[in-house]
Simulated scan of single mutants.
Amino acid sequence: MRFHRQHHAMYEARMHGGFGFGFPPGPHGHGGGGRGRGRGRGRRPNVRGAVLALLVERPMHGYEMIQEIDSRTGGAWRPSPGSIYPTLQLLEDEGVIAPAEESGGGRKRFTVTDAGRDEATEAAQTPPWAEFAQDTVNSWHDIRDAGMQAMQALRQVMMTGTDDQRERAAQVLDETRRKLYAILAESE
């Protein structure tokens, strides 16, 4: 049992990040296909707990889990495959989960074993996605929508603007980038 706790603690330290939006590494996450997104400076979400909480509901495969967590947090947390699949492998190695009898679409679905039932039930009581308060999710949507609208405007400038307009757009983007980093540099 001691080995399990030590192994689990090392695993948690390495794997609890893995967000998927492609921001550069920083205080909000680490590498592995995605970075911190909408989290602030708090602790990283519990991927293991999320996987187990989902499997209490029904058998799922890794990609399904990524989509479910993304959906349940309104896009504020989308674990990367680099955090989900190693978690599934670890849980399977520990005997906490096992492949489901029927795996659909060529993807391996997992289910909770009897040995993992208590841990999974406990994880489902307060699932990790519950950490994302509705105001955080709404804030994420507002920022994402504003960014998408800005990208559409930039696309128009690039496609139909003059050389002078494209140059001025590049200056606006440079200024915007500096201002965004200045926001992050502000003390909390």
Rank of each mutant, 00 (worst) to 15 (best):
L54G: 04
L55T: 05
L55V: 05
V56S: 04
E57S: 01
R58Y: 01
R58S: 06
R58F: 00
P59Y: 04
P59L: 01
M60G: 05
G62W: 09
Y63D: 15
M65Q: 04
I66G: 00
I66Y: 02
I66N: 02
Q67H: 09
E68G: 00
E68C: 01
I69K: 04
D70R: 14
D70T: 15
D70M: 10
D70W: 03
S71Y: 11
S71A: 11
R72C: 00
R72W: 11
T73L: 05
G74E: 08
A76C: 08
W77T: 02
R78F: 07
R78E: 09
P79Y: 06
P79S: 00
S80C: 14
S80V: 15
P81I: 12
P81K: 14
P81R: 13
P81D: 15
P81F: 08
P81W: 07
S83I: 10
S83V: 15
S83R: 13
I84G: 06
Y85N: 13
P86Q: 04
P86M: 07
P86A: 10
T87S: 04
T87Q: 07
L88E: 10
L88Y: 01
Q89M: 08
Q89D: 14
L90G: 01
L90S: 10
L90Q: 10
E92N: 12
E92P: 03
D93F: 06
D93N: 00
E94D: 13
G95D: 11
I97W: 07
I97S: 09
I97R: 06
I97T: 13
I97G: 12
A98H: 08
A98L: 09
P99H: 07
P99K: 05
A100P: 04
A100H: 13
E102P: 02
S103C: 10
S103G: 15
G104I: 01
G104A: 07
G106A: 02
K108W: 07
K108Q: 13
K108S: 09
K108V: 14
K108A: 09
K108C: 12
R109Y: 15
R109W: 15
R109K: 15
